[in-house]
Simulated assay, not measured.
Amino acid sequence: MIYLDYAATTPMCQEAIAAYAEAASVYFGNESSLHDIGTKAKQLLALCRRELAAMINGEAEGIYFTSGGTEANLLAIRSLAAAYRHKGNHLITTEIEHASLHHLFKQLETEGYTVTYLPVDRFGRIRLADLERAITPKTILASIQHANSEIGTIQPLADIGRLLRAHGVLFHSDCVQTFAKIQLDVQDIRLDSLSVSAHKVYGPKGVGAVYINPRRHWKPVFPGATHESGFRPGTVNVPGIAAFITAAQQLHRRMADEQSRLERLRNRLLHAIAAKQLPVTVEGHPDFRLAHIIGLSVAGYEGQLVMLECNRAGIAISTGSACQVGLQAPSRTMLAVGKTPEEAKQFIRISLGAATTEAEIDQFVSTLERLTSA
């Protein structure tokens, strides 16, 4: 089967599988144990922290490993918001955040916080003027994604970071879709915290991480937790973390070459759609977007039908974020960029990855052509 759903998850790379096997057999100790076997696991974990910190130009003391991107988002926001609650109760986010954050902010509204949901333009980008207007003396934190998981639009994080830092507002970003895909520098962006996930970078599922600037205070979500410096409970998944960092390093090292290759594949897809005059609209920003995520609206066809027809033809695509599959409501992102509910349901997402070839792109376009000309 042709796999064009890498934004949902990626297969583990061979290097990550080998790292997991070695760590599970050699570094199997509980890193909290005081004996030598536990110490070996702790040393490997410390190395993984340093390596992850280096990839984002952060500090090892700020790395906390989690069970994935969703938990990373939840713990980062809750631990920071609780620590700075004495300064205010106003939070800022966007209308197009990942479901894990959208649902979290809705929950925080029931707990005494007020939340501003910034609108986006038709390309999925926030306006800095809207962000500045939203800031109040009670604003303590803003959470704005690095790039959208459905249309790939990249937010101007450096400009956002400068603005928030000038107003003394903490800045968190969900970087799950961008980590090891495009340059990510927490110092340059002025990020106070970020979240990443292993299974988006050819690592294992069930592993992720939070970075919090060591100079920022946070309050434990789980009082009494002893693992990860009290950031979360539960025995640390050392083999999974070793596999995560190995996979991330492999992708990070070839980042520029891989992005160029994905850009060529993207252009091949879009040029073919245009040449065949298919009833398809490309969603997202034309310039500020990830190469590997391509959001498309197929006029006159519900995305679910297109997805099922592609599946019948042996091609795996999606109708949006995997975390929203099964919901009847149309994509929040599509509604936020100005689509009607009917138009929003015509959305599909193609996401490219390490094994994607030109022949696979051509086969997808041919399938789309057969469907729309029937």
Rank of each mutant, 00 (worst) to 15 (best):
L131T: 09
T153A: 10
H102Q: 13
S79V: 02
N213P: 01
L290H: 04
L4C: 06
R349I: 05
T281S: 13
I189T: 08
I37H: 08
G224D: 02
A21T: 14
E71N: 13
N267P: 00
S100T: 12
I63V: 14
T94D: 02
I77Y: 01
L251I: 11
G303K: 07
N237C: 04
F222N: 05
I140S: 01
A275S: 14
N57M: 03
G295L: 10
Y202T: 05
A248M: 11
K138I: 00
A72T: 09
L251D: 10
T153Q: 03
A344P: 12
D174P: 11
I245D: 04
N267K: 13
V120N: 02
S33I: 00
K339I: 00
R50V: 10
A46V: 03
L278R: 12
A147E: 06
L108G: 08
S373V: 02
S331K: 05
L265V: 08
T114D: 10
I348M: 07
P223N: 11
H199G: 00
Y211S: 01
D121R: 03
Y113V: 03
L52N: 06
A256C: 05
L163T: 15
Q259D: 15
R133I: 00
V365T: 12
N213M: 05
H172T: 08
F347N: 12
Y3W: 14
D159G: 00
S260T: 14
N89I: 08
Q183R: 13
D188E: 15
T139R: 09
A72M: 06
L45A: 06
